[in-house]
Amino acid sequence: MADHEELRRLLQDALGVESVTDLTRLSGGASRETWRFVADGNSRVVQRQRAGDERDMMIEAATVDAASRAGVPVPELLRAESSPSGSFMILDAIDGETIARKILRDADFVDARAALPTQLGRALAAIHAMSSDAVDGLPEADPIAFYTDVLDSLGQPYPMLELVRRWLLEHRPTTGATTIVHGDFRLGNLIVGPNGLRAVIDWELAHVGDPMEDLGWLCVKAWRFGQSPPVAGIGEYEELFAAYAEASGITVDADVVRWWEVLGTWKWAVMCILQASAHLSGAVRSHELAAIGRRVCENEHDLFLALEGRW
């Protein structure tokens, strides 16, 4: 309760409101947590980052703000503060569903599923219309080099991931454009209502790079959550590409998106190894994290599928 009281006061001061009630924790990880609350009758969300996290929440807040101005559906940013005890940002709360399984299977989302492939294409076009210098301080890194370093730091050999790494290096597309990239655009990070997309959230992995990265990541098999259609488990490539092209004026090269899909599947494998290592190193003892380590072979299988006829 002491924690609640401290947070309540912090929110009250930050927003300059009379009352903060109904504080409910939505999720929490090792480095950040998300709470929903009501401030003077309005539903809000606060994301808190613990001290010591390397990522700068002020950059994320600036990105959400820039995205809003660029016409991307995002929750309105109300306040962002950085302090030695940890940063936080307060956003308008948007009702809707984020759980992929429900969006993909529940009858409530039949119309949403029909509308989403086109809406996702348009939202991505709006994100990528932001120029790479629209937000100061966004990182720009070579994903192959970055995740190779992560893999090497974990010290376990994965021959299949080495083979795919070589394919990625040899087939790397020439970057057509450099824009702001969301970095984790998929079900789970999208608020969906009965009519489809309401907001794009979780901008913490936003960076500067090839916009096709976001399209490829959205098609990674893990983000189809067991469904067959390639785009988020909902739509066909052509639907996404057509909506994106219409909104952005940029014709999508399917081979380039496929390269990013392979990169994304490879990257997700490294992230699974990283999660299991958090358990193995003792940082976070968790049987759930341990189990994720054995999902790497699913990614390896997916890589064979994605590369069939392309080696």
């Binding site: 790494r165 699913e298 064979f304």
Partner: peptide, 29 residues
């Protein structure tokens, strides 16, 4: 693989890795 020492045998490498991944899946999922 990373050093390129198996570059002239990549078809073989793929076939062998396919079998290994199948075995891993047979246990994991």
């Amino acid at each position: 693989i990373r050093a390129g020492d198996l570059d002239d045998r990549l078809d073989e490498v793929r076939t062998l890795l396919r079998a290994t991944v199948d075995d891993k899946l047979a246990v994991a999922n």
